[in-house]
Write a protein that binds this DNA or RNA. Structure first.
Lengths: 133, 133
DNA sequence: ACAGCGATGTTATGTTATAACAGTATTGTT
DNA sequence: AACAATACTGTTATAACATAACATCGCTGT
């Protein structure tokens, strides 16, 4: 399960700091938790974190979990060819599993097309209990 | 497209008030917007609304839209036999379409089973532009 | 009568997110 | 080098969303 190493060459200072914090955590963090982690690095205001997160999400390096109001590092970055489609969130241990499933992606797209709905983004979050719990 | 009439026989006063407000709106409302609507009815505190919403969601009479931090009346109540699976949210006009699709439901369930994940609830929200916009 | 339980009302507080404005850094162009 | 354009940064203040804690009320069943 050795994960990838991300270098973030093009990231700015704050973006790097936030990305590093997310990766170190290995799970979802709230913006304010990230901020607290980074006070030692000189960050002081929520906006500094939110602005970095906005970019990271835009770049596909991080994802926002709507049902948690939290953010996670993308597991897939750098491998290309997959869009993140869904998350399985364990309500007991907090573990988040990121899923790329092209069948699901297609299904969502065709649902949208049925209604002539121009889908821009999709949020799929499954809540429950994971294997280990 | 004549929709159903809901009578809410078993609802408490606050639950009725909140449900009525959601139905009258015909679209998503934030808890605080609901509160403002109901100040004339004597409601004063957010908790009064949140507590009612919690029950309504539990009863399946309303849904929470995670990506909007808002709530909508369920379109389907009283017909039985369908679980709400997804929402299509227009980012331009704010219109929300509620979708029951058993194929999608099955797909989510089987994704969960693949990982031996005991799914309790699912959130599926598609963002984009609707036909009319 | 009274215990149990769920709903209510209220105050206070916690948590998440953005507005508005000023300044700094980088890049590309002439 | 001078400049404009663009993006990022820092800061203060505030908005928007949500819950904790506690006291009380009003049913229902025994």
């Amino acid at each position: 399960m050795n994960e990838h190493v991300h270098t973030h060459e093009k990231l700015t200072k704050n973006q790097s700091l936030v990305m590093g914090t997310l990766e170190k955590a290995g799970g979802p963090l709230s913006a304010y938790t990230i901020l607290d982690e980074l006070r030692t690095e000189g960050l002081r205001a929520p906006l500094q974190v939110y602005r970095a997160l906005e970019k990271l999400v835009e770049f596909g390096l991080a994802h926002r979990l709507e049902s948690l109001n939290a953010f996670v590092a993308c597991r897939h970055t750098g491998c290309g060819g997959h869009k993140t489609i869904a998350f399985m969130i364990c309500e007991k241990c907090g573990h988040v599993r990121e899923i790329s499933d092209s069948a699901l992606a297609g299904q969502l797209q065709s649902l949208a097309e049925q209604d002539q709905f121009a889908m821009k983004t999709s949020t799929v979050e499954l809540r429950g209990i994971c294997v280990e719990c």
